[in-house]
Nucleic acid binder design. Structure first.
Lengths: 163, 163
DNA sequence: ATCATTGCAAACTGTTTGCATCAAG
DNA sequence: CTTGATGCAAACAGTTTGCAATGAT
């Protein structure tokens, strides 16, 4: 089923290489955080990471976690993302991508979006000549699409509730 | 230039009507908040509102502001939006729309987006049959586009800095 | 007289910092 | 031996809550 089997050492070396590539020492804390995110492919909150690491028998202190998350974001190994609910999560996927976000539980998964034009031109609301002129002066960098949705498990919960 | 001139009383009555329409008494605090947002068309943070109201000579206490913001959001007169920087702002524009957001200062303006297809289909990353199947079970509600950008005044600041 | 609203102060949540200790180069 | 990492505890920012005073019906 899984054609490429990643051995722990292989992943560990990968993590170590990435850390050194950005000038960070491959300390235990940093390796634990990155390995967790790479393995699970989830968008954890800081709290969720604390719990996950505790559950794995490799707990970290809050201070250490936050200190390292900040460094990892600064050095570009992680991205900090804030959902529409205001909850901060960390994303190990560095490729440009979009998010599917559950409106109920905040769960977030990486997606591409089919049918998205290469360039998206903003149009002012309300549309007036002066607003148009002002808007033209913004330099648009990148579009980020958030697809609000209901995830499968929240749908089930809703169905159970209505039954 | 402005074909329809809104007199203060007119706007006041509008605010009052809207409040009553959702079953909220048109108290001073609520009218001040709504009038501020309708007049300026800005996406204020709570702190910015406190300051703006103080500057207008009609200060509110933090508690009162937050209490009322929550009610106004609950009753659907305002929308709470969190930018990519994690800062919470309030949006009085209830029509579906997108946001142009300054990466430097967080300023946010409402826009429509030209060329956006009616339906956007999410595609899993990485694309595998099982991921595809799982993704198909999400119920997609609404796409929300955030255009990261640099606003005119931040562009000027950058130019001044490089000179 | 009753019930909603205000606003102070205290509580709370998520995050950051100061600092003593410990580990690595 | 010098520099960086850890983790406790205290500080901090933004938001919420308890409660007494006030205002509206």
């Amino acid at each position: 089923m899984a054609p490429v089997m990643r051995l722990p050492t292989e992943r560990g070396e990968d993590v170590q290489r990435r850390l050194e590539a950005v000038g960070l020492r491959p300390t235990l804390a940093r390796r634990l955080v990155l390995e967790l995110l790479y393995e699970t492919n989830c968008h954890y909150t800081a709290e969720e990471m604390l719990e996950a690491l505790r559950a794995r028998g490799t707990p970290l202190s809050v201070a250490t976690l936050y200190q390292n998350l900040r460094q990892l974001v600064e050095r570009g190994l992680l991205r900090k993302v804030t959902g529409p609910d205001g909850v901060v999560r960390y994303d190990a996927n560095l490729e440009p991508h979009h998010h599917l976000i559950c409106r109920r539980c905040g769960r977030m998964v990486d997606v591409a979006v089919e049918g998205l034009p290469a360039t998206l031109r903003p149009v002012p609301l309300p549309t007036t000549p002066s607003a148009e002129r002002e808007l033209a002066r913004w330099r648009v960098l990148a579009p980020h699409v958030e697809l609000e949705a209901i995830c499968p498990s929240c749908q089930e919960q809703e169905e159970a509730f209505h039954a």
